[in-house]
Write a protein that binds this DNA or RNA. Sequence first.
DNA 1: TTGAAAGCGGTACCAG
DNA 2: CTGGTACCGCTTTCAA
Lengths: 345, 345
Amino acid sequence: MPSSISMPAPPDRVTVVTIARQAGVASSTVSRALNGDTRISAATRARIAAIALELGYKPDALARTLSGGRSGLVGLVLGPVENPFYVAMLQEVVAQAARRGIRLLVLHLGAGAVEDETMEAVLQYRVDGCLVTSAQLSSRIADMCGSHGVPVVMLNRTTRLRASSVSCDNLEGATEITQFLLHEGHRRFALVGTDTSSSTALEREQGFTRALASAGLEAVRFSGGTSSWMGGYVAGEGIAALPPAERPHAVFAVSDIMALGVIDALRQNGLRVPQDVSVVGFDDIAEAARPTYALTTMSQPLVPMVRRGLDMLLARMEDPALPDEVTLLRGTLAVRGSTQARVVA
Amino acid sequence: MPSSISMPAPPDRVTVVTIARQAGVASSTVSRALNGDTRISAATRARIAAIALELGYKPDALARTLSGGRSGLVGLVLGPVENPFYVAMLQEVVAQAARRGIRLLVLHLGAGAVEDETMEAVLQYRVDGCLVTSAQLSSRIADMCGSHGVPVVMLNRTTRLRASSVSCDNLEGATEITQFLLHEGHRRFALVGTDTSSSTALEREQGFTRALASAGLEAVRFSGGTSSWMGGYVAGEGIAALPPAERPHAVFAVSDIMALGVIDALRQNGLRVPQDVSVVGFDDIAEAARPTYALTTMSQPLVPMVRRGLDMLLARMEDPALPDEVTLLRGTLAVRGSTQARVVA
DNA sequence: TTGAAAGCGGTACCAG
DNA sequence: CTGGTACCGCTTTCAA
């Protein structure tokens, strides 16, 4: 039966055999030549390369993997994208992975639990390694990867699990930004945190609280639930509802997205930022730089974090015996318009 | 050499052969049994299933694919995530794909061009189909997929390419929201568009312009560059700079994210929304519902769109001969606080 | 320097 | 109903 007009026959796959026949050599020779094996004469190598190019040969990644090689696949477990920080992270991971010839297999995205079938994909597709950001139940992924010799690197998340990690020095960062607030003359503080206890949020709270304690101060704590705009907004309403005498000079939110919610809530309730209340966050998401927010925040070194994370992962894909490693990177303070020095009354 | 303490030997892979030996049958029988082939006696099937379960057998997706089956992989090409709409889409795609047992291979993300190596991944990993959202150069992906018999479905993007698509009825939606504005008494309009000509933006502009034309009206056009908050902000500043006599009653932005930028710019310049100017968008991203914006917009039926898109893709993965198909879904008007009826002067 | 052949883990065809 | 076997595309000994 002749093929229909609208469906040009998908061209037959060009394989090592196709090339071997064309070149009049064995398929094994083709394989070696294309992989730059120096035992093959430069002449034959060149000839085979030429034919491969001409025929548009694309090695089958699956077959290659099956016969014992790497899959080139890295599993990706991504946190709640309601927080733009995770979106930025995703973007950076995708960009850098592409540059390194790594393919990303989406294993999970969002706040929910990682499903079982998802976990199985790690084995079924012979994923070489996993990149995990946040996710409450990431420990399950780490466990199963660990027991199957699949290296795992956590981004923006410290852990005691068998896995390596790269994250911002949250404790130090929170300390630094708190000291900045103290230096600016603020003496009454509010802390905006979450109900869920992610390592990230906890460390930041600690840094803040300790820095205050060193100055003999305490903060009132507000929680809006999750690390989201709405979470911050709810907390912000609570702060705005305080009697003027108890109103904080400055608010520290454990994430930028919450800080933005806080700012909106304060303004919605007639308070000015920074004139009445200074607000700071942590992350430095793109929205923080908008003129309407101009959020003072601790900027996470996103690009280096991802680079370091991929380096660590690739190294462990090469040599699975490498010991776990924890890297902390320092953030940098980004001072913008959401804070202002407090004139002593 | 004994294995080290920290590295428990990765357990040997459980294959059909492992099970076959355990059960005292041929591997082909195992394969059939596990695939529910009714020719195998219910008894043997049960027995094999039990052994498989006990041994924790996970069929190797790669081997299965190599021997002629589907890979279960769908390539994902995602648009600029600066626009939260694409993030929401990603989230929905991931969720629904997981539910259907489809694995997503990230091919691209962002505004940039799709790289060559990325395109090759489609063939190298034997991707069963591709899901494409936006992306200027998505045509290249579509081309190469088309010529290799890999079905493509475009989401939120109409096209004349060989590919199917699902999108919101942008023309109709823009018309409807414009008529709403007219009905509310607005007579002077501004249009906020982009420099890049995505089909989506163009159709929305058309719907708006035509609806106005039907009423004998015209709009001043502003462009802030890209479909982003900043793009909207820049356009908004232009609008705010107009002399009061020329100030529009209502602004139609081709996307929510731009509309938010417009609102912020107007307010930053002392104009009130909706009292001085009404603003509408298109998409209904989560941010639009924030009390601080309360954006009136055309809500895209995201969940049904994705469902329909996956349906179409799966159908074509089963039967590649299916003809291309274009589906338009109607959006629904979400009236919120960023618009207000204009009292006739 | 190159060829032949044996897998990798499944599926499917052909027998029996 | 079930077993044997070839094959998917590539890598990798083992020979020559």
